[in-house]
C-alpha cells in the first residue's frame, strides 16, 4: 500500500510541477469575485447569464462579435436558458443576409434560431478602421484565450485608472491597471446604471462586469455544466472501481508469497 501511495503522489506531484512550470511568469493580483461556475459542481447563475447577455447586446455588441454563438444557444441547456419563444423573439430583432433567392439576389430577413450571432462589422478591416486601428477581439472564446481567464477580463473591465505621472498616452489609448502592457484602446465602458436590468438588480459596474464575464465564460465553455456533472460522477466511479480492483488484486496475489 505504501508503494501505491508513493506512486500516486509522484504522479500527482509531477502533474502539479508541470502545471506550475507552465503557468509560471509574471503575475499581477487580479480582482476576484465569487464565480458560481468554479468548483467541482459549479454551475452558471442563470440570472447572471441572462443579464450578461443584456450587457453584451446593449454595450459590447456594437464593436465585439461573438461569431461562434447561435441564437439557439440562448435556449440550450446549461446556458442562459431563455425559453425557446424568448430566444426566437431575440433572434427576430436581428437582420441577417440570406440568399441568393430565385432571382439571384441576396436579401435580408429576420434571424432564426439556427443563425449565428450577427456580427457588428463585415470583416476585420472594417472593424479596425472603425476602432482607430485596433481590432475589437471576438468574444466567443475570449475567456479561454487570456491567461487569467474570467478574473482577468473582470479586472480589465474595472481596471481603468488615471495613468501614473509621467506616462504619456496617445489619443484613443487608455490606461488600465490590469491590461497586458497597461495600455488599452477600448475606453472605459461600464458606468453606473448603464443598462436597466429587468429583474431589478442594481446595475453597478461590478455587477455588469460580473454578469457579462459570466456570459463570456459560458460562451467560451458552453458545456461546462455537463463537464462538471459528468466529471464528478466519473471520479467517484473511478475511485470505487479502484478500491474494488485493489482488493481483487490483494486476493489474487495472496496466492504467491510476495508483496504487491
Amino acid at each position: 500500500m505504501k508503494n501505491v501511495i508513493k506512486l500516486f503522489f509522484s504522479i500527482f506531484l509531477c502533474s502539479i510541477f508541470l502545471t506550475n512550470a507552465h503557468s509560471a511568469g509574471e503575475k499581477i493580483d487580479l480582482l476576484k469575485t465569487d464565480w458560481s461556475f468554479k468548483g467541482y459542481l459549479g454551475k452558471f447563475d442563470r440570472g447572471s447569464l441572462q443579464r450578461g447577455y443584456q450587457v453584451y447586446t446593449e454595450v459590447c455588441a456594437s464593436c465585439h462579435s461573438m461569431k461562434y454563438l447561435s441564437y439557439r444557444n440562448l435556449s440550450e441547456k446549461g446556458g442562459p436558458e431563455f425559453t425557446e419563444e424568448q430566444a426566437k423573439a431575440i433572434a427576430s430583432n436581428f437582420e441577417v443576409t440570406d440568399g441568393p433567392n430565385s432571382d439571384g439576389e441576396m436579401f435580408t430577413r429576420p434571424a432564426k434560431l439556427s443563425d449565428k450571432f450577427v456580427m457588428p462589422y463585415a470583416n476585420v478591416e472594417e472593424a479596425k478602421i472603425s476602432n482607430g486601428g485596433a481590432y475589437p477581439p471576438d468574444m466567443s472564446v475570449l475567456v479561454k484565450a487570456r491567461s487569467g481567464g474570467a478574473d482577468y477580463i473582470y479586472s480589465v473591465l474595472l481596471g481603468y485608472e488615471d495613468p501614473p505621472e509621467g506616462m504619456i498616452l496617445d489619443d484613443g489609448v487608455y490606461y488600465n491597471k490590469y491590461m497586458y502592457g497597461n495600455k488599452i484602446k477600448m475606453p472605459k465602458q461600464l458606468y453606473e446604471d448603464l443598462v436597466t436590468y429587468n429583474d431589478g438588480t442594481p446595475a453597478t459596474p461590478e455587477q455588469m462586469a460580473k454578469d457579462v464575464v459570466t456570459f463570456m465564460a459560458w460562451s467560451a465553455e458552453p458545456h461546462l455544466e455537463a463537464r462538471h456533472k459528468i466529471g464528478f460522477r466519473a471520479l467517484i466511479y473511478l475511485i470505487i472501481l479502484t478500491i474494488l480492483v485493489y482488493f481483487s488484486m490483494k486476493k489474487i496475489w495472496s496466492r504467491v508469497e510476495s508483496e504487491v
Binding site: 500516486f8 466529471g231 466519473a234 471520479l235
Partner: peptide
Amino acid sequence: LFALLLFLIVFAFFVFY
C-alpha cells in the same frame, strides 16, 4: 489494471476540472 485506474483518476481530473 490497478495502476491504470490510479492513473485514470489523475487523467480524469485534468479532463474534467
